[in-house]
Each structure stands twice: as C-alpha cells, then as structure tokens.
Amino acid sequence: RLRTTITPEQLEILYQKYLLDSNPTRKMLDHIAHEVGLKKRVVQVWFQNTRARERK
C-alpha cells in the first residue's frame, strides 16, 4: 500500500484543527476529512500520530 502524501496546505488545516481539539469526535473527523480532501481513516491516524508525538 502506498503512503498518503499530505500537502502543506492540508497539514496547515490539520494543525489548526488539532489546536482546537486534539481528540475529535467521529463527526468532526468526517468534517475535517471532507474539508482537507483525505479519507477519514488517514485523518484519524494523523491525529493519533500527532498525539503520540506530543507525548514524547
């Protein structure tokens, strides 16, 4: 499986959303995924990875 490439514009939106809520609901994940044009699962994993990186 190929990795999904996230553009700088998408990253900017994801980080803005992360600052508002680091643990979004399913509904919010759907909305964010639609807004940035990525699959919900990709957005979900991005949030998981970002939370894990923050803990280190």
Rank of each mutant, 00 (worst) to 15 (best):
residue 32 I to R: 00
residue 51 R to G: 08
residue 12 E to I: 04
residue 34 H to P: 02
residue 38 L to F: 01
residue 15 Y to G: 13
residue 19 L to F: 05
residue 11 L to G: 11
residue 17 K to L: 06
residue 9 E to R: 06
residue 52 A to D: 14
residue 18 Y to C: 02
residue 12 E to T: 12
residue 50 T to K: 09
residue 39 K to M: 13
residue 27 K to A: 11
residue 23 N to T: 05
residue 38 L to H: 02
residue 9 E to C: 02
residue 34 H to F: 09
residue 3 R to M: 15
residue 11 L to M: 10
residue 41 R to L: 11
residue 17 K to A: 10
residue 23 N to S: 09
residue 25 T to D: 13
residue 41 R to S: 15
residue 31 H to T: 14
residue 16 Q to R: 08
residue 20 L to Y: 04
residue 47 F to N: 01
residue 16 Q to H: 06
residue 14 L to D: 03
residue 41 R to T: 15
residue 33 A to E: 02
residue 29 L to S: 04
residue 19 L to H: 08
residue 37 G to D: 05
residue 37 G to I: 01
residue 14 L to H: 01
residue 18 Y to K: 02
residue 31 H to W: 07
residue 43 V to A: 01
residue 39 K to W: 02
residue 48 Q to T: 11
residue 20 L to C: 11
residue 26 R to I: 15
residue 48 Q to C: 08
residue 40 K to R: 10
residue 53 R to K: 10
residue 14 L to V: 00
residue 54 E to I: 08
residue 39 K to R: 11
residue 12 E to R: 08
residue 44 Q to S: 10
residue 13 I to D: 08
residue 37 G to M: 03
residue 25 T to S: 06
residue 49 N to K: 11
residue 55 R to D: 15
residue 26 R to F: 12
residue 8 P to T: 09
residue 7 T to N: 05
residue 35 E to M: 04
residue 17 K to I: 03
residue 49 N to E: 15
residue 31 H to N: 14
residue 41 R to Q: 14
residue 18 Y to G: 01
residue 35 E to F: 03
residue 40 K to N: 14
residue 7 T to D: 09
residue 6 I to E: 04
residue 55 R to A: 14
residue 19 L to R: 09
residue 4 T to E: 15
residue 23 N to L: 05
residue 44 Q to M: 08
residue 33 A to M: 01
residue 5 T to Q: 13
residue 17 K to T: 03
residue 55 R to P: 13
residue 18 Y to W: 05
residue 33 A to G: 05
residue 15 Y to L: 11
residue 55 R to L: 14
residue 6 I to T: 07
residue 16 Q to L: 15
residue 16 Q to A: 12
residue 56 K to T: 11
residue 29 L to A: 03
residue 20 L to K: 08
residue 47 F to Q: 01
residue 34 H to D: 12
residue 40 K to D: 11
residue 3 R to A: 15
residue 35 E to V: 07
residue 21 D to C: 04
residue 41 R to N: 14
residue 5 T to F: 05
residue 24 P to L: 02
residue 32 I to E: 01
residue 45 V to W: 06
residue 7 T to R: 04
residue 31 H to A: 13
residue 9 E to K: 08
residue 14 L to P: 01
residue 11 L to N: 14
residue 31 H to R: 07
residue 56 K to G: 11
residue 37 G to K: 11
residue 29 L to H: 02
residue 35 E to N: 00
residue 25 T to M: 07
residue 7 T to Y: 04
residue 2 L to N: 14
residue 36 V to N: 02
residue 52 A to P: 03
residue 48 Q to P: 03
residue 18 Y to P: 01
residue 50 T to F: 06
residue 22 S to Y: 03
residue 38 L to D: 00
residue 37 G to R: 06
residue 47 F to M: 04
residue 2 L to E: 13
residue 40 K to P: 14
residue 26 R to T: 14
residue 5 T to D: 12
residue 33 A to H: 02
residue 31 H to D: 15
residue 30 D to T: 06
residue 48 Q to H: 09
residue 44 Q to F: 05
residue 36 V to C: 11
residue 14 L to C: 01
residue 8 P to E: 07
residue 15 Y to A: 08
residue 11 L to A: 12
residue 37 G to S: 06
residue 3 R to C: 14
residue 51 R to V: 08
residue 41 R to V: 12
residue 43 V to T: 03
residue 19 L to G: 08
residue 33 A to S: 10
residue 46 W to G: 01
residue 10 Q to A: 07
residue 53 R to Y: 06
residue 13 I to K: 09
residue 2 L to Y: 14
residue 32 I to G: 02
residue 25 T to G: 05
residue 46 W to I: 00
residue 25 T to H: 04
residue 26 R to Y: 10
residue 39 K to Q: 13
residue 29 L to M: 12
residue 23 N to R: 09
residue 23 N to Y: 09
residue 45 V to Q: 11
residue 8 P to Q: 05
residue 38 L to K: 02
residue 48 Q to V: 08
residue 22 S to P: 13
residue 14 L to M: 08
residue 12 E to W: 02
residue 54 E to C: 06
residue 52 A to L: 06
residue 16 Q to I: 10
residue 44 Q to R: 06
residue 51 R to T: 06
residue 7 T to W: 02
residue 38 L to T: 03
residue 54 E to A: 04
residue 38 L to E: 01
residue 39 K to Y: 09
residue 20 L to P: 00
residue 45 V to G: 07
residue 19 L to D: 07
residue 45 V to T: 07
residue 45 V to H: 11
residue 54 E to N: 03
residue 6 I to S: 02
residue 6 I to G: 03
residue 33 A to F: 00
residue 44 Q to P: 02
residue 29 L to W: 06
residue 31 H to C: 12
residue 27 K to P: 13
residue 51 R to P: 01
residue 53 R to L: 11
residue 27 K to H: 06
residue 42 V to C: 11
residue 24 P to H: 02
residue 34 H to W: 09
residue 4 T to N: 10
residue 6 I to V: 11
residue 2 L to P: 07
residue 31 H to M: 12
residue 44 Q to T: 07
residue 49 N to L: 05
residue 44 Q to I: 06
residue 15 Y to F: 04
residue 33 A to N: 00
residue 18 Y to A: 00
residue 24 P to N: 03
residue 34 H to V: 11
residue 10 Q to V: 06
residue 6 I to Y: 12
residue 10 Q to S: 04
residue 32 I to N: 00
residue 9 E to G: 07
residue 31 H to Y: 11
residue 24 P to A: 01
residue 26 R to W: 15
residue 4 T to R: 03
residue 5 T to L: 08
residue 50 T to Q: 14
residue 11 L to H: 11
residue 28 M to V: 09
residue 36 V to D: 01
residue 12 E to G: 07
residue 17 K to W: 10
residue 10 Q to G: 01
residue 16 Q to G: 09
residue 49 N to D: 13
residue 24 P to M: 02
residue 30 D to E: 06
residue 42 V to M: 10
residue 17 K to S: 09
residue 50 T to V: 08
residue 53 R to D: 14
residue 24 P to Q: 05
residue 43 V to N: 03
residue 46 W to L: 02
residue 13 I to V: 12
residue 47 F to D: 01
residue 42 V to Q: 05
residue 25 T to K: 04
residue 53 R to I: 09
residue 40 K to V: 13
residue 48 Q to S: 10
residue 56 K to S: 14
residue 3 R to N: 13
residue 53 R to M: 09
residue 41 R to E: 15
residue 46 W to F: 04
residue 36 V to I: 13
residue 40 K to M: 13
residue 44 Q to N: 11
residue 49 N to T: 12
residue 53 R to H: 07
residue 41 R to F: 08
residue 9 E to I: 07
residue 23 N to H: 05
residue 4 T to W: 04
residue 22 S to E: 12
residue 33 A to T: 04
residue 32 I to Y: 05
residue 9 E to P: 06
